[in-house]
Nucleic acid binder design. Structure first.
Length: 506
RNA sequence: UCCUCCUUAGCUCAGUUGGUUAGAGCGGUUGACUGUUAAUCAAUAGGUCCCUGGUUCGAGCCCAGGAGGGGGAGCCA
């Protein structure tokens, strides 16, 4: 048995492949079959003249996603994507699949989500899952190579760590328990035992968010480091993201090509320092009061709006032009179809642009009226990151909008040493981190201010009682990182079986 | 919880001012074609127009309520 990945090593030899029919076209006495085996895709030629009758009959019978065993010779062919194809000598059927529901055409989201178990076989989903695998591997690799210990935090938790509104409740032998929304507090305990650790596990949020960047169940990586300060924390985040992105784009060239991902900006960030700015400066930039290298966030967005409007006009004109051509007649059927498909694509693009056209004025409005001291909304992130091509780090946040465990800025107790990393290209927040408060009394005061149940934090306060040290850490959302690397618009495509508000099956 | 959009063939969508028998492409089936890249060409089958009620001589289209879904706000990774 051979695999499509690495088939180039077998040029001229006979190989045995097992897989599924991803596509099939026919000519007279000839079938073109695209076989997929999980490792890749390859075209296989069944020529009536060079196979036995049983094989040719089998080739006639099989439809999309039928499972087969193919024996044939590996032949170099520049026309093919992988550069090789298989001249089939034998084809055996495992099972003939009848009327596979996912056609070689575009489908709606709802339909595809209902068929998620099958959708995973499609090329782009396949590519995304392969990138996901590499991202996970490279995350472990980075930490393991740098002396971190992987530790698992519990999924059942007895008390709400940061307020209970966003937690899933469950029954734990008659006691009320919650599914963890973060493993951080446990991570801190483990850092005091092992120095530098990272958790890598599922996290649960019961927010009723129906947006393209939220899941109810997602995977989070949370490193925690004893004796780290704010700068060390930011340095680590930066080298971590650079390492994972660099290795992943190197190791997933085919997959990212399949996803039509332009990797030039990802390439660029691996050799550029991430801009770092305080919350105060970031607010000035969002409000248009401060320029970055001569560019103004508000003005830039206004220009974008003009451009969007122009694009809509252009695309509408193109649709009319194509429709006129079709209506004029005398066009071959293939050409008509081509034009109709183009029109469909254009319509979808216009829909998206119109959404943008509607949103930008709202974003501008909200950016201009931004109240200092508030948290960034999704649109504020977009306005800010529009000025940059690489991730940016925003540090020193207002104390009242951040979690109770964050440590104050030394000379300004209204601010805390938190840091958020915002990805470019509109992907928004992918990392949130901070230096943790190590002083027991200050921590107790903060628990009171946030109105949290003190008894739930007895064990946590012990960490500040027995050998408390400065320490810091951060949390990274795996799916958001994958979306950014793959340029995936909806987070539900970055995880095999997404769990989100309104979606529990399949 | 709020705002907004959508629901017509297996799938993606048209459907004019409310008017006779509901439209296309893809997919399926049958046939044609020796190199296709979502192949192409011909023929063919395929409908509870989301549900309930209302207005009307007449509703896919108008009105009310409901269900399901998309996008967004809040919240966040």
């Amino acid at each position: 048995m051979h695999f499509i990945e690495g088939i180039s090593n077998f040029e001229g030899q006979t190989v045995n492949l097992k897989g599924w029919i991803a596509n099939k076209r026919s000519g007279k006495g000839l079938f073109f079959i695209v076989l997929r085996d999980g490792t890749g895709f390859i075209q296989c030629i069944v020529d009536q003249n060079s196979v036995d009758e049983a094989t040719f009959n089998n080739a006639t019978k099989i439809g999309l996603e039928s499972s087969v065993e193919i024996e044939g010779q590996v032949v170099k062919d520049e026309r093919q994507i992988g550069g090789f194809e298989i001249q089939v000598s034998k084809l055996n059927i495992y099972q003939v699949a009848e009327e596979y529901p996912i056609a070689k055409k575009e489908h709606g989201v709802d339909f595809l989500m209902d068929k998620r178990h099958l959708w995973l076989r499609s090329k782009k989903q396949w590519a995304t899952m392969r990138v996901r695998n590499k991202v996970i591997y490279n995350i472990h690799r980075f930490f393991q190579k740098n002396g971190f210990m992987q530790m698992d935090s519990p999924i059942f938790t007895g008390n709400a760590a940061e307020g209970s509104t966003t937690l899933f409740e469950t029954d734990f032998y008659g006691e009320q328990a919650y599914l963890a929304q973060t493993g951080q507090l446990y991570g801190e305990a483990m850092a005091m035992a092992l120095g530098r650790i990272y958790t890598f596990g599922p996290t649960f949020r019961a927010e009723k968010s129906k947006t393209r960047r939220h899941l109810s169940e997602f995977w989070m990586i949370e490193p925690e480091m004893a004796f780290y300060d704010a700068k060390m924390n930011m340095d680590l985040i930066e080298s971590f993201i650079k390492s994972v992105v660099k290795r992943t784009i190197e190791e997933c060239k085919t997959e990212l090509e399949t996803l039509d991902r332009d990797t030039s900006l990802l390439q660029k960030l691996t050799e550029t320092s991430f801009p770092r700015m305080s919350y105060t400066d970031a607010v000035a930039i969002i409000k248009g009061e401060k320029d970055v290298e001569g560019r103004n966030a508000i003005k830039l967005l206004e220009e974008d709006l003009g451009q969007v409007k122009q694009e809509i006009t252009d695309k509408e004109a193109e649709i009319e032009e194509r429709e006129a051509k079709i209506n004029a007649g005398g066009m071959k059927k293939g050409e008509v179809n081509f034009n109709r498909n183009k029109i469909d694509t254009l319509k979808a693009e216009i829909k998206e642009l119109k959404e943008k056209e509607e949103n930008i004025p709202q974003w501008l409005e909200s950016a201009r009226n931004f109240q200092f001291g508030e948290d960034f909304g999704g649109s504020d992130e977009t306005v800010l990151t529009r000025l940059f091509e690489v991730p940016i780090m925003v540090y020193n946040w207002p104390k009242k909008i951040k979690a109770f465990y964050m440590k104050e800025v030394d000379d300004d107790p209204d601010f805390v040493q938190g840091v958020d990393v915002l990805a470019p290209e509109g992907f928004g927040e992918i990392v949130g981190g901070s230096v943790r408060e190590e002083d027991k009394e200050k921590l107790i005061a903060q628990i009171k201010v946030h109105d949290l149940p003190m008894e739930a934090f007895e064990w946590y306060l012990d960490l500040r009682k027995y050998g408390s040290v400065p320490h810091a850490g951060f949390g990274l959302g795996l799916e958001r990182l994958i979306c950014w690397i793959c340029n995936t618009k909806h987070i539900r495509e970055s995880i095999p079986f997404p769990r989100m508000y309104g979606r529990l099956f399949p």
